[in-house]
Simulated assay, not measured.
Amino acid sequence: MHGEFKVPGGKLVVVDLEERDGRIAEFRLAGDFFLEPDDALDAIDAAVNGMPVDADAAAIAAAVRAALPADAQLLGFTPESVGTAVRRALATAAGWLDFAWEVVHEQAVSPRMNLALDEVLTKRVGDGRRTPTLRLWEWNESAVVIGSFQSLRNEVDAENAAKHGFDVVRRISGGGAMLMAAGQIITYSLYVPASLVSGMTFADSYAFLDDWVLQALRSLGIDAVYQPLNDIASPQGKIGGAAQKRLAGGGVLHHATLSYDMDGQVMAEVLRIGREKLSDKGTTSAAKRVDPLRRQSGLPRQQIMTRLKDTFVQLYGATDGHITAEEYAEAEALVESKFATDAWLRRIP
């Protein structure tokens, strides 16, 4: 059995192992990481060999950490990344290059249509009717998008949202409210099979699925990092955030919004971001937490989006794709039956 895990912002961890009588056998760790002293590698191998095959990533990481010499130095990887690679090997997880990827970047549609397309395309990837896909969004109007489990009245000032021209919609993934002004944000969705993140914790899968974005932003001179659970940031502040939804049919939706530009005053008037949420961020203003890409890079929005697409294509061999007429029609029906209804928007008043 073979498993790989690319540590976000770090190195590749590779494991090979066998299963014998419910135990891990012939375990070997490899990768492009740095490890001192040399014999620490043997200590890691010995720690994992003989463990039960149903040991979770945390248990494997604890065994690795306990076996390391006191002076061991791990650079580019962690005991937790070893545990993740082992779980991926035992689950026969797929890698990025095991799939034929498509990149879709089409005309602007409404916020509700974008959300419906997310659900439709995720289901189709899950049941095999669509190849795994990266979709770059375009918006034809501004919106506040709240998380699936948020209270509408607690998160949005409806009067101010209407005054500033923001529609209010609810997505199928969790997480917090996002102020999405048309032309001022960059949003993308990944529609992937569950096998791509098999063996990972939710936290690991967030960083894993956005690692290509960090590489793209760094190539533009932005010192981008991932901040658990779901923030993309730089030393200057938060750039954006991600959210996920895993559907019963086997499809995984991972989408993220990056701030390209913003009006902090409008954000403060439209979003009701409470003090409790901000208390662990070291700031009293949500707007001050965000540092948009326009200020950090000085580049046009479209140029940043092109770099995102080009990086994904270079890393994973993706080709240009399109949303079919049938998929658009299915999404339009879902807008009418779900995303445009008060029952969905106000399911948590």
Rank of each mutant, 00 (worst) to 15 (best):
N154M: 11
D21L: 10
W96H: 03
F202A: 15
T284N: 09
D71E: 14
A70D: 12
I222P: 05
I146R: 04
N114F: 03
L90T: 01
F312H: 00
L214P: 03
F149V: 03
L90G: 03
A72S: 10
V252S: 03
K238Q: 07
S81C: 09
D210R: 02
K6L: 14
G298M: 08
L152N: 06
A343F: 02
S337N: 06
A93R: 01
H322P: 01
T131Y: 01
F149T: 09
P292T: 04
D211S: 09
D45K: 05
V53G: 02
A58V: 04
N49F: 00
G298L: 08
E269A: 15
M267G: 02
G50H: 08
A43T: 10
L220D: 13
A93G: 01
G83N: 09
G174C: 08
R171A: 10
M1S: 13
P79K: 10
F339A: 06
R153Q: 13
Q107E: 15
F166R: 12
A72Q: 04
L74P: 00
Y328I: 01
S110T: 14
G240N: 08
S189K: 11
E269G: 08
G76W: 11
D16Q: 11
K281H: 13
K309R: 14
H254R: 05
L196H: 11
V144K: 11
G83W: 12
E276P: 00
L299P: 13
V104P: 05
M200W: 05
Q215I: 13
G298P: 12
M267N: 07
A47F: 02
T284R: 05
E276D: 11
L293A: 02
V313C: 13
N160P: 05
A47H: 12
P52S: 09
D211R: 02
D204L: 00
Q215C: 07
V144R: 13
I185Q: 14
V290C: 03
L29V: 04
Y260S: 05
P193G: 02
S219W: 00
V15P: 14
L134H: 06
F5V: 01
V86T: 04
G50Q: 00
D167N: 14
F99W: 14
